[in-house]
């Protein structure tokens, strides 16, 4: 219960942060050349000044900046993200359509990164300065230094073009109209390369953190106590080191949730996935500011949600958290 209360308090504290972001981005977008109406007019293939004025009046764009901001925030409170002129649908609908692909990609990539980062980090730390450490650390560095989009392209060349094992892009094969299990498998096939592309970069980061944190913990006093009890090394690692070494990793997930969401913009573009990231890119290109602002809102919410889960997880791992410090 105290854990939940603690995480809840952190959650409440992120509300001002959310408003700070929204106000900041809203004001920032005022500097953008052209507004939604300009974009709509361009979409319609031009129009006269009267139509433009009427449209501006309709969308409340003729009001003062303060009033517009207040309007916007008031609409947000009611979860109304406005209307996308480009897609001709409410922004909320557009985003809802795109959200599943991104969520799926992020979950898969994060699991991959965390799981293998953990294992490789432990293996490297156990054999510090031996060949397995050198191999894993080098591999980690290379994955870290590779631009994700380039890795994606190279993966497409190898696995989709030459070997023809996996599809080169898309979320699912819509030409066949699969259902049920077959459809799930098809989606999984489509997500293998994007997941690897996004996940391996973060795996490289996690394995480095895990290795360092393992080495740090292995040097602590209580590990010496455990050895003085007559424990063998494997047991020392499993029972005493692992959980302590995990703490910085878990913290990192929370800190990097935002970066990872940003990374999916690029990966979704490479693999033509209909996700939130690609939508963000498209709305920048098409100057669909309403949608862009909606994406900012939703992605901030996502990051806050991830951090809430991370807080819960951390509190479960570390009993000191609930002790009030």
């Amino acid at each position: 219960m105290r854990v939940l209360a603690l995480a809840g308090r952190r959650l409440a504290a992120s509300i001002p942060t959310l408003f700070l972001i929204l106000i900041g981005v809203f004001l920032l977008l005022q500097f953008a050349p052209g507004d939604t109406v300009d974009a709509m007019m361009a979409q319609m293939g031009g129009g006269d000044a009267t139509t433009a004025r009427q449209l501006r009046e309709f969308y409340g764009l003729d009001l003062s900046l303060g009033a517009q901001l207040a309007n916007y925030l008031w609409r947000l409170v009611r979860l109304d993200l406005g209307f996308s002129a480009i897609y001709g649908k409410p922004v909320a609908t557009v985003i809802a359509e795109r959200l599943p692909a991104t969520l799926l990609l992020m979950t898969a990539a994060l699991s991959l990164a965390f799981f293998f980062g953990l294992i490789l980090g432990v293996v490297a730390a156990r054999g510090v300065n031996k060949w397995q450490d050198t191999l894993i650390s080098t591999l980690g560095l290379v994955f870290y230094a590779m631009p994700t989009f380039w890795f994606g392209l190279m993966a497409i060349i190898v696995f989709a073009i030459y070997l023809q094992w996996l599809p080169a892009g898309g979320f699912e094969d819509i030409t066949v109209g699969l259902t049920g299990l077959a459809r799930t498998l098809d989606i999984i096939r489509h997500l293998v390369l994007p997941t690897l592309t996004l996940g391996l970069f973060y795996m490289a980061i996690y394995l480095r953190i895990m290795r360092g944190s393992m080495l740090e913990v292995l040097n602590l006093d209580f590990v010496r106590t455990a050895r003085a009890k007559g424990m063998d090394e494997t047991r020392v690692v499993v029972r005493h080191v692992l959980r302590n070494a995990l703490l910085p990793m878990v913290t990192l997930i929370g800190l990097q949730a935002g970066t990872m969401l940003g990374g999916s913009v690029v990966v979704e573009s490479v693999f033509s996935l209909p996700g939130l990231g690609r939508l963000a890119y498209e709305s920048v290109i098409q100057r669909d500011l309403n949608t862009l602002l909606g994406i900012v809102f939703v992605s901030a919410l996502l990051v806050i949600a991830v951090n809430f889960i991370v807080d819960l997880l951390y509190a479960r791992l570390d009993p000191r958290i609930t002790a009030g410090r």
Partner: peptide
């Protein structure tokens, strides 16, 4: 390892850090 703990046991200076906090 069989001797440690069972035959010869040890206590340390700083009981806070010598115990696993988790």
């Amino acid at each position: 390892r069989k001797v440690r703990g069972a035959g010869i046991a040890m206590i340390f200076q700083e009981p806070m850090t010598a115990l696993n906090p988790l």
